[in-house]
């Protein structure tokens, strides 16, 4: 059996009779950029919420590198290696840019409360190494110069980048991007595509993304799954999926 980074098996959830997602079967291989598309209300974000533990799936399960993570809490799932961004940006807006990233790195430092409060040598050592790592990461996203700015004072595009940086700070195996291009102009979207490719290559990352922008989707995704009314409409390579008559009718309402 080939090992997928993420495999979902008949994953599903319903809210009071409405099948928000049903029998979702995704198979994402290492280093792949996988797109999850579909009209509004198709259940894309619901899938993300199940994969990150915000919702507990009612049916099916999902495996990260072969390990069953179904039903675990969001923080546990993150520790196991799934990180995400949000459709509506959720930064720690009253904290500085670098602090946002440092929160993401929290689980990489083994410095207890006593160590921290008493400022023992271990505190300084871990703090220094975390800070260096955080600045390195910020530099990748060209945010190092603004590390002391409050996150809420960043321009929109940079907030998106910061959110990605924060997710990467947790050292995930799989990165989930929820509409990364939402609210961006064509130029910013083009930049974002470069960023996503860069993330994949540089961090050797597997990425699952939700997106409406077809240019972005067809530009960077290796494979696609189309959802409609909570069920899988089509899956496969980009050109196959986008030429699928059912997909076209779902999108155009034909």
């Amino acid at each position: 059996m080939t090992e997928y980074v993420l495999q979902t098996i008949d994953l599903g959830i319903s809210f009071g009779g409405l099948h928000a997602a049903k029998d979702i079967n995704l198979k994402i291989s290492d280093n792949e950029i996988y797109g999850l598309i579909g009209p509004n209300g198709a259940g894309k974000t619901t899938v993300f919420n199940m994969l990150t533990g915000v919702y507990k799936p009612m049916t099916g399960k999902f495996l990260l590198c072969g390990e069953d993570l179904t039903g675990k809490s969001p923080s546990e799932i993150n520790k196991k290696g799934i990180a995400r961004t949000f459709q509506n940006i959720r930064l720690f807006s009253n904290m500085s840019v670098i602090d946002n990233v440092l929160v993401g790195m929290n689980n990489q430092s083994k410095c207890g409360v006593v160590n921290s409060v008493l400022r023992l040598p271990r505190f300084w050592k871990t703090e220094r190494s975390l800070r260096e790592a955080a600045r390195e990461l910020l530099a990748v996203f060209d945010l190092d110069g603004e590390r002391r700015v409050l996150a809420s004072n960043l321009p929109y595009g940079k907030q998106r980048k910061l959110e990605i940086a924060r997710a990467l700070a947790t050292k995930p195996k799989l990165l989930l991007l929820d509409e990364p291009a939402a609210g961006m102009n064509p130029q910013e979207t083009a930049e974002l595509m470069d960023t996503i490719r860069l993330i994949r290559d540089r961090f050797d990352m597997t990425i699952l993304l939700i997106e409406h922008d077809m240019k972005l989707v067809s530009g960077i995704c290796d494979k696609l799954t189309v959802l409609n009314f909570g069920t899988t409409l089509a899956e496969g390579s980009v050109s196959y999926v986008l030429n699928n008559p059912e997909v076209i009718s779902a999108y155009l309402g034909g």
Partner: peptide
């Protein structure tokens, strides 16, 4: 780092959970 986590919870609990 503990204080950062605490402030992160204040700012956005869902995001805090999502970063572990």
């Amino acid at each position: 780092k503990h204080g950062r986590a605490i402030r992160a919870i204040r700012d956005n609990e869902i995001a805090a959970r999502s970063v572990g």
